[in-house]
Design a protein around this nucleic acid. Structure first.
Length: 752
RNA sequence: GCGCGCUUAGCUCAGUUGGUUAGAGCAUCUCAUUUACACUGAGAGGGUCGGGGGUUCGAAUCCCUCAGCGCGCACCA
């Protein structure tokens, strides 16, 4: 046997900065991230089991942070493992327009540099500026994802606002409108005065604050004191509601009173309504139908007037001294007036949840507005009379879609149970414009409406001037279509047939409602099938001490900085280690450094193995046990990956490679090599085999260093001496996943 | 108010259907070592598994209860 020298590159420590760009280039040239190429080149059988997954599209305003890095790593691990297992694997990338966030960002930039508002520029010009911004930023975020080693099929990259996706959104809206699920109605909506748009219930964040609860009466004649934290709305009251069983007020129900409240004439009827909590405040509720969700519903039941007293800028609209005042100012003025008039009974501090807009932080003002809604309770004929709510529930209840970890299924059901109609129209310019056209009379009243992809036909156009609705759709409306709009829907494409329903949806638990639920809704309605078979949720990435990463704490750990310092493989491993599904995880620089050492360990193991590697021989029975041991590890690692316990899988292979392979097997081999002969030759091949298996198992987790080593491996000489056996694959990325222990070790449909 | 999760070594966490003496990483301390690797190796200290009760031959693991922390939803006059 002639000992071969290890390639010179192994004489120096592993250098990620040198290897990573080369590996990226190799992978990109290979085209193996595209399943069509894999089939073409014979790596994957055309009829192999498919594995498909969409990348949760990052916002074009965003940059890569540890959260998105975690997402990329989890998905890339699962995808690379599936590809090596011979599955026809598709991972679709894309970017998200993130309507409000993007428009706000561009508006801010323009305000800063040109001191202009969007109204100064006009709709067309603003949208043009946004497009420029988006194009610049898209490539930044895409390049960052590429650097992570994400084996996404960039040839299928989608953007929520590109032509195909735009068309899909229009089609989806029109179809849902035709089915009677989308309607336009005057209802109380969540108005964000800061963002100047409506928002959905899910975009509200409740903040606990202390509020002043004021107890008073409207006038000296009015018999019931009421309590409120929002005095300014009381000029819009049209009723006082008490509980039907509340004996204190029984005799007063049905009576009506007039009063002049802080200069505003009001007419208040006393009604009995079961929604009133007799134990809160005075047990009597001043009903302001136009500025409270529950009061609006009470007004429905008692046929009350609904005067609006606050406008979109959160200012008073009522004639008189209050007109034009901010709500907070009006509150003080009324309080002073109550004191002066001796109508004030009590003031007390109470804790209160204030509704704020998630994006802007503005205090949400409930306002009655004419908006588009999606009806979640209407039976759908073509879906056997089920409602959207029921369809959403069915998908998970039937087990067709499984959520990991399991307990999030309860959270999901809980959300569905409390779901109200979804307000889908937004008063911003950047987004998918609602495909509705209105014809108005001289006074501006809408006399005709058309909903359609094309707009008014020529015949209709001759009837008068049509104007398209200026509103755009909630960004989650288009996101809901993502699993199938990225595959070419509404066209019946091959991709759609092959890859939908997708196999897996992996995302953060924080967008379970926003996105996961909406995708189920959309797919169930439009395709009559689930969007994905499994949902895997991950948590928030926190710093080493478990704190949320925030600018004010200055504890940001930038994934790209860290990879420059320690290598992307180290970043990837440290994100996965200790990360249980659905649970928040932690990352620190020390942790990352540890895995850099591991990459180097692997590098040096290779050096040792190659230095002792020699010509053809067979493996003896003692050594076969070691090979089998590696097979056992492969079996367990595979099982953990299948169960999405990537943390356990990573830990297992890490410990096998370091503590068993390097610390024990390699050490025991040294005297064997000194002894020479058959035993040494057998051992040399055994070490090569174990290294081979280790590289494959580690590849999904640490693709760069493993591929870099693979590229340096000599072609193994055949044990049977047939010679010239080619290295089984030119790329570790598409090398065959190790055989597993059990006889059920399937071939995973790999082409030979 | 309803629901979910967490509580194990100084720190961060594993512990998969209950089964010997409860594990890892980091940190601390001691020692070793010029060839695969100091981006190393060997070893040590450190835990009444949040409290209490129960089931069991046996409980970190299952049940009840209490406490603390975190989160979601609802209410929010």
């Amino acid at each position: 046997m002639e000992p071969s020298k290890a390639p010179e590159i192994f004489l120096k420590p592993y250098n990620p900065a040198l290897e990573e760009p080369q590996m990226l280039e190799l992978w990109e040239k290979s085209g193996y991230a595209n399943p069509d190429v894999c089939v073409e080149k014979g790596v994957t059988k055309p009829d192999a089991e498919t594995f498909s997954i969409v990348l949760p599209p990052p916002n074009v305003t965003g940059i890569l942070h540890m959260g998105s890095a975690l997402m990329v790593v989890i998905e890339d691990i699962v995808v690379r493992a599936a590809r090596m297992q011979g599955k026809r694997t598709l991972w679709i990338p894309g970017t998200d327009s993130a309507a409000i966030a993007t428009q706000a960002r561009v508006e801010k930039d323009i305000q800063k540099s040109e001191k202009k508002t969007r109204h100064d520029l006009g709709r067309e010009e603003l949208l043009r500026r946004i497009d420029v911004f988006v194009e610049e930023n898209k490539s930044i975020i895409i390049n960052q994802f590429k650097k992570m080693g994400a084996s996404l099929d960039w040839s299928r990259c989608a953007y929520t606002m590109d032509e195909k996706r735009y068309a899909a959104v229009m089609e989806a809206f029109v179809r849902m409108h035709a089915a009677g699920l989308i309607y336009r109605g005057q209802r109380i909506v969540n108005w964000d005065p800061k963002g100047q748009t409506t928002i959905s219930d899910d975009e509200i964040v409740y903040e606990e604050r202390t509020a002043k609860l004021v107890t008073f009466t409207y006038s000296h004649e009015f018999p019931i004191p009421i309590a409120t934290t929002r005095l300014e709305t009381k000029v819009g009251d049209t009723a006082v509601a008490v509980h039907p069983d509340d004996g204190r007020y029984a005799g007063l129900v049905g009576k009506e009173y007039d009063a002049v409240f802080c200069g505003v004439p009001i007419h208040v009827k006393i009604v009995a309504d079961p929604s009133v909590d007799p134990s809160f405040g005075t047990g009597a509720l001043g009903v302001t139908p136009a500025h409270s969700h529950t009061d609006w519903e009470i007004a429905d039941r008692h046929d009350l007037l609904r005067p609006q007293v606050i406008d979109e800028k959160a200012r008073m609209t009522i004639e008189g001294a209050l007109k034009g005042k901010k709500t907070m100012e009006a509150r003080e003025i009324i309080l002073e007036w109550l004191k002066k008039e001796n109508l004030l009974i009590k003031e007390e501090e109470i804790p209160q949840n204030v509704a704020t807009a998630e994006r802007t932080g503005g205090i949400v003002e409930p306002l009655p507005k004419l908006q588009w809604f999606l009806d979640v309770n209407k039976p759908i004929a073509k879906r056997s009379g089920k409602t959207l709510k029921e369809l959403m529930r069915d998908a998970v209840e039937s087990g067709e879609t499984e959520i990991f970890p399991k307990h999030f299924e309860k959270v999901y059901f809980n959300w569905i149970d409390n779901l109200r109609d979804w307000c889908i129209s937004r008063q911003i310019w950047f987004g998918h414009r609602i495909p509705a056209w209105f014809r108005k009379d001289e006074r501006g009243n809408i006399v005709d409406t058309i909903v359609g992809v094309e707009g008014p036909s020529s015949a209709k156009a001759s009837e008068g001037t049509w104007e398209q609705d200026s509103d755009t759709l909630d960004t989650w409306f288009s996101s809901g279509l993502w699993t199938f709009s990225t595959l070419g829907w509404p066209e019946e494409t091959d991709d759609l047939k092959t890859y939908h329903p997708t196999s897996l949806l992996e995302t953060g638990y924080d967008i379970l409602f926003f996105w996961v639920a909406r995708m189920i809704l959309m797919s169930q309605f439009h395709l009559g099938e689930i969007p994905f078979r499994k949902v895997l949720l991950h948590g928030i990435v926190r710093d080493g001490q478990g704190r949320k990463i925030s600018k004010s704490l200055g504890n940001n750990i930038d994934p790209l900085d860290m990879s420059a310092k320690y290598g992307m493989d180290a970043v990837r491993m440290s994100l996965i280690a200790g990360m249980a599904p659905g649970t928040d995880s932690k990352i620190s620089e020390e942790k990352i450094r540890g895995y850099k050492h591991f990459a180097n360990k692997l590098w040096n193991i290779t050096r040792f193995v190659l230095e002792n590697y020699g010509s053809a021989t067979s493996i003896n029975s003692d050594d076969q046990k070691l090979v089998d041991e590696a097979k056992d590890v492969a079996t367990e690692v595979s099982a953990n990956i299948d169960n999405f316990r990537l943390d356990l899988a990573a830990d297992q292979v890490y410990h096998f490679v370091w503590d068993r392979f390097a610390a024990e097997i390699l050490e025991e081999s040294k005297p064997i090599f000194r002894g020479g002969g058959e035993a040494a030759a057998s051992r040399a091949h055994t070490l090569y085999a174990i290294l081979n298996t280790s590289l494959k198992l580690l590849h999904p987790f640490m693709p760069f260093v493993t591929e870099a080593i693979w590229q340096q491996l000599p072609q193994p000489s055949s044990a049977q001496g047939s010679g010239g056996a080619r290295k089984e694959s030119d790329f570790l990325m598409v090398a065959k996943w190790p055989l597993l222990r059990s006889s059920s070790a399937k071939d995973f449909g790999r082409a030979q």
